[in-house]
Nucleic acid binder design. Structure first.
Lengths: 212, 212
DNA sequence: TAAATTCTGTTGCAATTGCAACAAAAACAA
DNA sequence: TTGTTTTTGTTGCAATTGCAACAGAATTTA
């Protein structure tokens, strides 16, 4: 997928020249937004990292998505109900641009080039999101911790073309991402090493080649 | 999300008037397409039902997605590797329109209104896809069969506003969709009934109101 | 630099889940 | 209608997984 859209450059040029597209800076640990029904706001993370967090009726917290630069998020992507509240919280200082879905489909005025750029880029950004989601779904549908880990490692290794790599997130977060118990995951990591399938040093993993 | 795009009407008008957009009919049990790297083909199901199926290196089959009318699919949404092969198979007679991502971004010719319609509708269709995926991810991240079932029922009941409803797919397919063992699921369904949380008759479920 | 917090690593135990296997019911096809 | 295939329902058993609890390492904050 080719995408020559540079969100940082776009943001810099934009500043306040289009009233329909907002830019805001949010400091670490602050809330970027709360999802509100029918507002149809769309956000793009121009810089920083953030988490989309849910609290269910019992107050349990889940990280629904981890968001990085270029990631798109917002209410339009979620069925919002009264049973859950969705928040996006900055994990680092963030720069965020936002607009409503309806505004961006329409033209702002004849000279506003930002709308057109955004509309075309939006397709690319959204498609990337779907790809990311499909990878996650594939991992989640694996029936055992071992299979989940093997799939995850496989995707990190660009499907086995690289044999040694670092895990880009903490093991605590990885367990959340794969939706498994952390201690059970650590146990399985050791089992994978005992079975000579991987070699692990801290967050560095080496895949052992199989003789089939 | 409002979307006044009528895919059936669009398909009827289109016929063969735009060479960049193809229509084809596929009979039940036949393959609609095989995913091929770098082809970037996009498909929309105008009518019928289909499954996106994967065979892994060991020959195990998984249903990745179930596709219905208005659903969009194609290579752009998947990281295609040599480790797996993806097929879309018609479960009923289907009508499918297809085009490449690049073709649709560009204009075909000055009088071709289909490109513009499609480009705008595409955003809506894709956003709907993301919503569907997010629902699936939410279900899959639930840690127990009971929680998965409760979430699934909750989404079917429009978040508890309806208390009795039918399950639109077979229990066999539901187990696949939730990525759990079917017999374990049946066992848990009985447990939910024993605990007076649901009442089940065939594929009809009634949610019992909780006194909290 | 010290204190506090988060992350990693480990284990026993109990609960959940998957697997295998089978029979009955239902749906589909010839 | 009859035979075939798919789906539903059930159970015992074994394996996997989650939970709780803790200690040490690493990182962050004051």
């Amino acid at each position: 997928m080719c995408c020559d859209f540079n969100i940082k450059e776009f943001t810099k040029q934009l500043q306040n020249s289009c009233t329909k597209i907002q830019i805001k800076k949010v400091e670490k640990n602050n809330t970027i937004t709360t999802y509100i029904k029918n507002r149809n706001q769309i956000y793009i993370l121009a810089s920083g990292k953030a988490d989309l967090i849910k609290y269910d009726v019992n107050g349990n917290k889940t990280i629904i998505e981890t968001l990085n630069e270029n990631d798109i998020f917002g209410e339009v992507f979620f069925p919002i109900t009264s049973n859950n509240e969705l928040f996006v919280v900055a994990k680092e200082n963030c720069e965020v641009i936002s607009f409503t879905f309806d505004d961006i489909i329409k033209k702002c005025n004849r000279t506003c080039k930002f709308h057109e750029t955004l509309k075309t880029s939006l397709l690319n950004l959204i498609i990337n999101k779907i790809v990311t989601q499909n990878i996650r779904i594939e991992l989640l549908t694996k029936r055992s911790i071992r299979e989940k880990l093997k799939s995850y490692f496989s995707s990190l290794s660009n499907n086995f073309s690289i044999t040694t790599f670092s895990i880009p997130i903490s093991y605590t977060d990885l367990a959340d991402y794969l939706s498994i118990d952390r201690s059970a995951m650590m146990r399985e990591l050791k089992a994978l090493q005992d079975d000579n399938i991987i070699l692990r040093k801290g967050n560095k993993i080496t895949l052992k080649s199989k003789k089939s």
